[in-house]
Nucleic acid binder design. Sequence first.
RNA 1: GGAGAUGUGUCAGAGCGGUCGAAUGAGCACGCUUGGAAAGCGUGUAAUGGUGAAAGCCAUUCGAGAGUUCGAAUCUCUCCAUCUCCGCCA
Length: 424
Amino acid sequence: MLDIKKIENDFEAVKKNLGNRNFDISILDQIVELNKQRKILTTASETKKAEINKLSREIGELKKNKQDASNLMSQVATFKNDMEKEANELEEVQNKQFSILAGIPNLLDAATPVGKSEDDNVEVKKWGHPRNFDFTPADHADIGEKLGMLDFETAAKITGARFVIYKSGIARLERALINFMLDHQISKGFTEMMTPFIAHERSLFGTGNLPKFEDQLFKLNSEQPWYLIPTSEVTLTNIKRETISEESEFPILYAAYSPCFRSEAGSHGKDVKGLIRMHQFNKVEMVSICLPSQSEEIHQKMLASSTEILEKLNLPYRAIALCSGDIGFASQKTYDLEVWVPSQNKYREISSISNCGDFQARRANIRFRNKEGKPEFVHTLNGSGLAVGRTVVAILENYQQKDGSVQIPEVLWPYMGGMKEIRK
RNA sequence: GGAGAUGUGUCAGAGCGGUCGAAUGAGCACGCUUGGAAAGCGUGUAAUGGUGAAAGCCAUUCGAGAGUUCGAAUCUCUCCAUCUCCGCCA
């Protein structure tokens, strides 16, 4: 959520900034106009309310002395009528303003490259060398199915498309990766958390998933407005919702494993084969809640921490800075990590690490008390460290052998009970 | 799932429908006192919005929302959370 005062005061700059996104900025004129109305109506209705309060006190005084107050009471009735009318108008204006404001994306960091689409993203780092195969590399779905350890068909029978059953070696690989990644993040100073996998509306509003992106979520048919979490970023960030913390508490660094649930509406036909785009997948997530002065440094720390995982697994990757046309709603600056996928002969997203500035903090009302003793909004950051299913994809494909077996990266051996390869 | 109880400021804990943003105590901050500390004394101790150059003033907030009333922390309704007992269950 943007600060309406910021929009008013830096109108041209805000307009230019958001114009770099694929976002219709004409709504900005409307919201400034609404804010003017809001102020006028606020003053009007509050003045009447003050008058009513004053008269009510006088009525109390009179009644205490057993005097007649009917004259004042009829005066109150008139004021009340006017006030209610204005208060209703005010509410309407406020609601309208709020719903528009809730749909405006975050301002972009100056470092975010300007561009129209993913083609304009900027590579900031490249690591490792894609392996030269002396045979045609299979894709991970074929590898897994041939091993009898990935079963999409049965999952479809039980649940539907875009679900999978892992078995034996690959099931263990998934679990090993979760533990390995979490251990790594903990070693970097992140605190391990385990949160609910269901969140309510208010939490999803806080991170910016609602109201605009409801179609990407699974909503439960429960009495409460509950949703399956699309990422534990939601639950981790909302831990501090509606609180004012002491400066000394920051930075807060969380890491958590969770399954993630996404409806993938609108992605029909994309990545239909394999593990890349599932309705349910596992992820180890980092969330940082920090002082504004700390967020840039922590963003770099998070980027470094996730890239280290890929390096330990010896998977070739590149890091890119998302451009203004491709970056997410809540983010001011995002790095994506893309891992090499041999069968597709390209890099595919495996992690996204974003600095949201105070955008989520405003929505979720997360604050700290500054040096002057005044509450101020914190900064929030989130990043995958990493998407586990896609890491399995990368390992299966990059470590595949001609005979259909898959070697296991050395760093995972202890997590696999000493297993060094997966074979039938 | 059934029965009952509770929900007030940083915490504990008062609060008859009227002057209650809310007694009292603790904590915390500052000052006095002290060689230093403790004790003691004094002062202060919310957020949001509006207005204003500022001091300030006004409005809202006593779990959330709605209602009754000239006036609600106090009355009514709905919801949420917590606790106790029973039932069920990993």
